[in-house]
């Protein structure tokens, strides 16, 4: 084996893993021309059977549940009940608003962090990226739990603020929308920072040098050259974060204290408390349709900018 192929083979660093996980898309497939090798196709059968039986069929079964009544006849009644209920619609609306807020905050904060890291020296860059990847590896549950410790009434933040005399009684960070926002942004930041950093580093430096030679100010270079070149990656990452926000379950449950239910928590209640499987199935189908449409846009942006 040559040194080069060995290098390529081991190119899966955690950072690329995280990136690929975050991007949700395998590298562009290398097309190879040649005859079809049917002997190999048999090797794929076990996985195909598993995925069809334990993933495809259950999802189709959900679709079926959303469209039939108790006697098994096709009906649109469940969808109508869902659409006409103001309680469901309120939760859907709040989920959309929170997902938008989370996406906006993550985009601004994450862009600043990624940009800052590119400005650091080589060694420091590695350390900072290492920190981002490390947090990415710690379980969502643990990171969500930690906010209770940090933001609780006797937590680090409230205690510090009170010691400094800035507030007289604890600020209520938890068990409301603010707590959910803080927790979700914290979990989702790496999904934006890692791809954005990669895009910024890939950028052709000569373009910036040309702008500088032509006498553009640093601010102007940033807004008219650098930023537009990073917009496709920023847009794709924002869509990804929005999709992930829509399905969030743990953070709203823990940091919202059950007071601010989002779509996923509503599905939990429908299944585990009210046993309204057919409505849960309707919500699944709607959420799935939204997710897949957004995912198609996400892929389209990535392919266009690739």
């Amino acid at each position: 084996m040559t040194e080069e192929t060995r290098d390529q083979k081991d190119a899966m660093t955690p950072a690329t893993l995280a990136l690929e996980a975050a991007s949700g898309r395998p590298q562009a497939p290398a097309r190879r021309q040649g005859r079809v090798r049917w002997d190999l196709v048999l090797l794929i059968a076990p996985l195909l059977i598993l995925v069809v039986a334990i993933f495809d069929v259950p999802l189709l079964n959900t679709l079926y549940w959303s469209t039939v009544d108790d006697a098994g006849n096709p009906t649109t009644e469940h969808f109508r009940e869902f659409a006409e209920s103001s309680a469901y619609m309120r939760i859907i609306w709040r989920t959309l608003v929170i997902a938008l807020e989370v996406t906006a905050i993550t985009a601004v904060a994450g862009y600043a962090l990624a940009y800052w890291i590119t400005k650091l020296g080589r060694r420091l860059r590695m350390v900072m990226l290492g920190l981002v990847v490390t947090t990415f590896w710690v379980s969502i549950l643990v990171r969500t739990y930690a906010w209770i410790v940090i933001l609780g009434n006797a937590g680090l933040v409230n205690r510090t603020l009170m010691d400094l005399g800035l507030i007289s009684k604890p600020v209520q960070f938890l068990y409301n929308e603010l707590g959910i926002l803080i927790g979700m942004v914290n979990v989702l930041l790496p999904f934006l920072v890692l791809p954005l950093y990669a895009a910024m580093v890939r950028l052709d430096e000569r373009l910036l040098q040309v702008a500088e030679t032509l006498g553009a100010s640093r601010l102007r270079i940033f807004w008219q050259v650098f930023f537009p070149l990073t917009v496709p990656t920023l847009a794709a990452s924002c869509i990804l974060i929005f999709i992930l926000s829509l399905g969030f379950y743990i953070t709203p449950a823990v940091l919202g204290g059950g007071k601010v239910p989002l779509v996923a928590n509503m599905m939990d209640l429908l299944i585990n408390r009210f046993a309204r499987w057919e409505i849960a199935a309707v919500v699944s189908v709607v959420l799935m349709a939204v997710t897949l449409s957004l995912y198609a846009i996400y892929q389209w942006i990535r392919e266009r900018s690739a």
């Binding site: 999802l59 996923a264 959420l287």
Partner: peptide, 13 residues
């Protein structure tokens, strides 16, 4: 790609 809550509900049913 499918949100895990959807997978969870589908597998439950």
């Amino acid at each position: 790609i499918v949100p895990s809550i959807i997978t969870a509900v589908a597998l439950y049913i």
